[in-house]
Simulated assay, not measured.
Amino acid sequence: MKRLIPFALFLMSPTAAFAGADDRELWISLGSDALAPVAEAFAREGWAMPAASLAKDDVTVIPVRESQLESIAHVMHEKFNRCAGFVTYESLDEAEKSLVPAPEPRVETLGPALYTLTNPTAANCMVGAVTEPNVRSTITSMAAYTTRYYTSTSGVNAANWLRSHWATLASGRTDMAATLFTHAAWAQPSVVLTVTGSTFPNEVVVVGGHLDSTSSGSTAPGADDNASGIASFTEVIRAMVACDYRPQRTIKFIGYAAEEVGLRGSKEIATYHRNNGINVVGVLQLDMTNYKGSTADVGIVTDYTNATQNTFIRNLITTYVPGVTYTNTTCGYACSDHASWTNAGFAASIPHEAVVSQGNPYIHTVNDTLARSNPPNMATHALKFSKIAGAYVAEMGK
């Protein structure tokens, strides 16, 4: 998105013909390579494929109906192994503006001092404090909801449970508060646990992952996608309390709503931080952490992420989680919530459970259960990401 070439403009096709009157028109941006598979999926449903309203480089904007987002998400997973793989916008103007390159991440102005490994006491304590049974327990609790789809009652209930769970973990700490971030356009809230920094409260570090699952019409346990990521950093919250770690910078742990339908929750939250001048110095995304599908334990996603921070993640693993191996991988267009922060001009990274093409084959189905994790019925792989996130919080929060 950094190459500037003239926009190619096309006439926009109406979408009302294949949607109900209460089915809102939205706009999505997606990789141009996905247009043909989406058109095929629309044809199977008897829907007309809308004409592109705008295209630039290898990204295209098209109008869609809200009810079609789930079908598009399935295409992105089945054809490209992307989750979600597109970004949803409330207006055409917002979608068009998204194609303008984001400013370089503000973190770069802080120089190498940001990415030093000088807090081993806190890092080693939290890496040592996280446990597999606790991670597994959170995965089990989240996956017990029939679905966590962003418009469903059970999806709302899952978000409320997560807020209560985080509040319980943080009880007794006056610097920690668990809240809901409500979204006007859909029912499911995002969940935020804020740990206010002791010295630099206006500098913010974000650790997040999406709490929703993909299906509105059937069972969607989403144990790996993404109860596992939520569970990995939920255990870091508990470890912070156990180690009495009180960061100098503010830490925000965020469970995003509505990721599966175009990164909607994280986009709204990242935009809020940008528009309000909140100084987010780094973002760590955990989306799918409990299926070991590659020889390497961790796939460091190199597209739509910050190269300098990615090097920092590698150094954290080498220093604090010896024995965990990593390799580089690419994800494709806007494949998870890290892209929302990158597009808003912040430095983001996503260590993934495997090389992206070798991740969990059961996601977005009724079979995304803990029993289908690798290894099955355990959270040993997700625990590695708890340790990475604990080290990240210790060093970025100092």
Rank of each mutant, 00 (worst) to 15 (best):
T319R: 14
N328F: 10
T302G: 06
I254V: 08
I317A: 02
D303V: 04
N306E: 02
K292F: 09
G265F: 01
R314W: 13
Y272D: 13
I278R: 03
D337Y: 01
G323H: 09
S336D: 12
A242L: 13
R238W: 10
Y326L: 11
A334N: 14
L263I: 11
T271N: 14
F253S: 05
N290G: 12
F312C: 07
G262I: 02
G277Q: 08
V281W: 00
Y291M: 04
I317C: 00
T319Q: 10
H273W: 09
T318M: 09
R246L: 12
H273E: 04
Y291T: 05
T329K: 05
K267F: 10
Y272S: 14
L316E: 04
N276H: 05
D244K: 15
I237L: 15
K292H: 13
A257P: 01
T325Y: 09
N315G: 14
A239G: 15
F253V: 01
T302D: 07
D287V: 00
A258V: 06
N328V: 04
S340M: 10
K267W: 01
G262H: 00
G323N: 05
Q309R: 15
L286Q: 02
L286K: 07
S266I: 03
W341R: 11
Y272P: 10
C243Y: 08
V280K: 04
A239P: 14
V261Y: 14
G277I: 02
V324C: 15
V236S: 11
A339E: 00
F312S: 04
G323F: 00
V283I: 09
K267T: 14
I278N: 04
D297Q: 08
I313G: 03
C331L: 06
T318S: 03
I254E: 00
V283M: 07
T311G: 11
K267I: 09
A334F: 02
A257D: 01
D244A: 15
A307H: 05
V241N: 12
T308P: 06
F312N: 14
Y245I: 15
Y320E: 03
D337V: 01
V321D: 05
G332M: 03
I313C: 08
Y320R: 12
Y326C: 05
G255F: 02
T311H: 06
V301K: 02
N310T: 09
I317N: 04
T325G: 07
G265W: 07
V280C: 11
R246M: 13
I254G: 09
D287M: 00
M288R: 14
Q309Y: 10
Q248G: 10
A242C: 12
Y320C: 11
P247S: 14
A339R: 10
I278K: 07
S294G: 01
V241W: 07
V321G: 07
C335W: 00
F253E: 13
I251C: 05
K267C: 10
